[in-house]
Write a protein that binds this DNA or RNA. Sequence first.
DNA 1: CTAGTATATCTTGCATACCAGATAATCAAG
DNA 2: CTTGATTATCTGGTATGCAAGATATACTAG
Lengths: 274, 274
Amino acid sequence: MAGSPETGFQGKRSLKAIMSPSDENPRRKRAANTGPKGLGHFDPSGRQTLADQIYEQLHHEITQLVLKPGTPILEREIATRFDASRTPVREAVLRLAREMLVEVLPKSGTFVARIPLSALPEALVARRAIECDLVARAAKLASPAKILRLRAIIEEGREAAASGSQAEFDKTDSAFHAEIAAISGYPGLWKLVLQVKTPTDRFRHMVLPVADRMQQVVSEHEGIADAIERGDAVEAAECMESHLNQLKTDTLHTIERHPEYFVYDIDLDSLKCE
Amino acid sequence: MAGSPETGFQGKRSLKAIMSPSDENPRRKRAANTGPKGLGHFDPSGRQTLADQIYEQLHHEITQLVLKPGTPILEREIATRFDASRTPVREAVLRLAREMLVEVLPKSGTFVARIPLSALPEALVARRAIECDLVARAAKLASPAKILRLRAIIEEGREAAASGSQAEFDKTDSAFHAEIAAISGYPGLWKLVLQVKTPTDRFRHMVLPVADRMQQVVSEHEGIADAIERGDAVEAAECMESHLNQLKTDTLHTIERHPEYFVYDIDLDSLKCE
DNA sequence: CTAGTATATCTTGCATACCAGATAATCAAG
DNA sequence: CTTGATTATCTGGTATGCAAGATATACTAG
């Protein structure tokens, strides 16, 4: 799961606008575009701009820790790498800057950002608050069909775990949580979670790959799905909470192993408590 | 509250990097920038780029409903208005597009976005989930000093309400909720709330200005502050929830009065339930 | 050898120019 | 009058060029 949290708000015109009949001006003058009139012109629009592609690639490389914190980002170099000009690269870099994935020092340089320590507990709190709420709603609303889709996703995850493909597994993990958001009736909130989730994703990739963590996640997902199927909102929320709490494991140890990857904007000790 | 939800991730270099002493190359060649080495170079940096200014202005005008949904955004026109080129304007527009405040139809035009109906309940759910959690934590952590700051903000709100200044009042409202996030120990999560909050802000500006709504909000804020002061987490969360639930009022009525301002991506009826 | 200064050369921010695609006005045909 | 094709013209996406500021190296003075 690497893609952009939100694809933006682009779409294709679908309906012709109404002509304004009376215009005596002999000069051919294009009238102001009247804008989208039709309903539901939301178009996920396979159309992808160059900037989008560059953004996604860089986002992927940064979150997967291919590009390590501190690495310089040369706009010019990226441009040639993608055989494009600086403009779309700059667009992508600016998006990454707003997501705190890169830091840009004006007139100096751009670098892959270190992870602010504060982002880790914040991500935890936010995810718990939102996802526990969503999963509880999902438990009350789930239809058999939806539950089957959930089971299917879990099964994909089991296969990915068996084949040891971390990347593939991560995708199913995202899909699982996104599907719960969808079942709960608020699919749009998943992209909110995606935003806060990013720092923890980067973090996860620097912890030693623990062998059976994937299988453990699969069984936790099953527990959540079971609770949803039973319609047990409280239990579902509790499962989700303990599932998310697993993110805390190895935190301190990992930070000690890669101290140069973090920004110490909060006290290290505050990570221990709670 | 109109400012950008997040200022980005820009900062000034503060520490000189270490020189690499051995470089026999007689040609003057500037070595790659070594990037930020010092800790905590986060610099809110009064420095504001042209694009930032344009973004903030447009953001303000859109959320305050000065620019109504459907209004065309002419990059060229905006550029001349701000006496700048298209480049920074484009930057600003792209940011607005990602926040769903404008829709850009490639090669056709850019328009102030209509409000997706789905965004309203989503904002409610997200805010309840996050802010109820935060206020409960705040209730457990609040120090007398923090509570005084909260009271001060409430008082500012009361004055703004008395003078009937909606804009001023909105600022204090944002400040109140932001302060609670700060007290809870997760100030960064307020910007998350700001994101989902935007559509409801636009919505609020098209409902007839109800006379005493501001005073009512003040007393609700007081109730929340009281609960926090007593350290009653449960009561605080409940107060916050009912406070946020007030956003639902007049929903359907307002939508009927301005049907052209919305995108009907979900069923109207689904707004009634719950 | 050390410390401070000067300068070459990099960087990002902004301005301008160009292009393909989309729209609206006009025209032609039924 | 309606419908479809034509074309001028506008739009956003991209490429390129210039300027101000920041850094690393070379240089100078002690």
